[in-house]
């Protein structure tokens, strides 16, 4: 039963990775852009949360609300000012642009929010739930719940609502969707804003375990990308599955393998896994149109 404790802890980090990965996959499916700046945009709005909280003494929920506003505006701005104007650029060109955005946000954050590292407190500072041999802090429980509820909510929206239908239609074929009268531009705008908020949530959830610096989202970004690789880029739920798997595997590798090299061994394992299942866990083989 000593497995329960690390498993629960994995669920917490898994939720963080899952939210970030969902943002990446939303953007990928709607704009066909590999969103390398997901982590740094999350870092930016997450730092905004910490900044407001530390400077004004506003409560956490209000700061997070402010962070969400920043994230939405950021997502809108990036899609409106850059991504949608790249229709003629190659796929690689778009990827390079998101790499350029990393640098922009990385440079902007210290200018706007100062160079001193900041702290972000837990949403629920103290308290544990006891589950037999294992303990779980209220805050961890909250993070797990947020991850699961947000991911599940997103799936419901995608499957049951008109907006979700528009997103899925755009994801499956952008030009057909446009011909059918779906406002694909609004859909991608929405996807970028949602990705921004998801990144911000991931940042706020992971921040209490570290300090808020321009690089604090790096691990999340890498893990989220690998979650997409592991889960496959063809479905929305694949990356979420991948995120939780990565978190669990990482925790156990760190515990029973090497505490220093756990993540790195895991990434290598995933790369090797690609040799066996090139399209990820739930990926279908995809056919190039000739």
């Amino acid at each position: 039963m000593e497995l329960l404790q690390p498993l629960l802890r994995s669920l917490e980090t898994g939720s963080v990775y899952a939210l970030a990965a969902l943002g990446i996959i939303l953007v990928w499916r709607t704009s066909l852009v590999m969103h390398f700046a997901q982590g740094s945009m999350g870092m930016f709005s997450g730092t905004a949360v910490a900044f407001v909280l530390n400077r004004t003494g506003a409560p956490l929920w209000l700061s997070v609300l402010f962070g969400a506003l920043v994230a939405v505006l950021l997502g809108f701005a990036v899609d409106f000012a850059v991504i949608r104007r790249l229709k003629r650029a190659t796929a690689v060109g778009k990827e390079i642009v998101t790499l350029g955005l990393i640098m922009v946000f990385l440079g902007l954050a210290p200018i706007l929010f100062g160079t001193d590292p900041m702290l972000l407190p837990k949403a629920i500072p103290t308290g544990d739930v006891s589950l037999g041999v294992a303990n779980l802090s209220y805050n961890a429980l909250l993070n797990i719940m947020v991850g699961i509820v947000v991911a599940a909510g997103l799936f419901v929206v995608l499957q049951k609502t008109k907006v979700g239908l528009a997103i899925r239609a755009t994801a499956s074929n952008e030009s057909t969707a446009r011909l059918m009268g779906i406002p694909t531009k609004t859909v991608t705008l929405l996807a970028w804003a949602m990705a921004g908020v998801l990144g911000m949530l991931a940042a706020v959830m992971i921040a209490p375990t570290t300090t808020v610096t321009p690089t604090f989202m790096n691990t999340v970004q890498v893990s989220a990308l690998f979650a997409c690789v592991l889960g496959g880029f063809q479905t929305f739920y694949g990356p979420v599955l991948g995120a939780y798997l990565i978190a669990v595997a990482s925790n156990f590798l760190k515990l029973y393998g090497s505490s220093v090299w756990g993540d790195q061994i895991l990434y290598l394992l995933i790369l090797v896994f690609l040799l066996v299942r090139p399209n990820g866990l739930v990926g279908k083989t995809y056919l190039k149109k000739v």
């Binding site: 104007r85 650029a89 060109g93 642009v97 350029g100 922009v104 440079g107 321009p214």
Partner: peptide, 22 residues
């Protein structure tokens, strides 16, 4: 003296070049 200026410089150049001067 602005910290992070070289990053912004490179980042914006990348975006602008891809957008307007491929």
């Amino acid at each position: 003296d602005i910290p992070g200026l070289p990053y912004i410089f490179s980042g914006i150049l990348i975006v602008v070049v891809i957008m307007f001067f491929p």
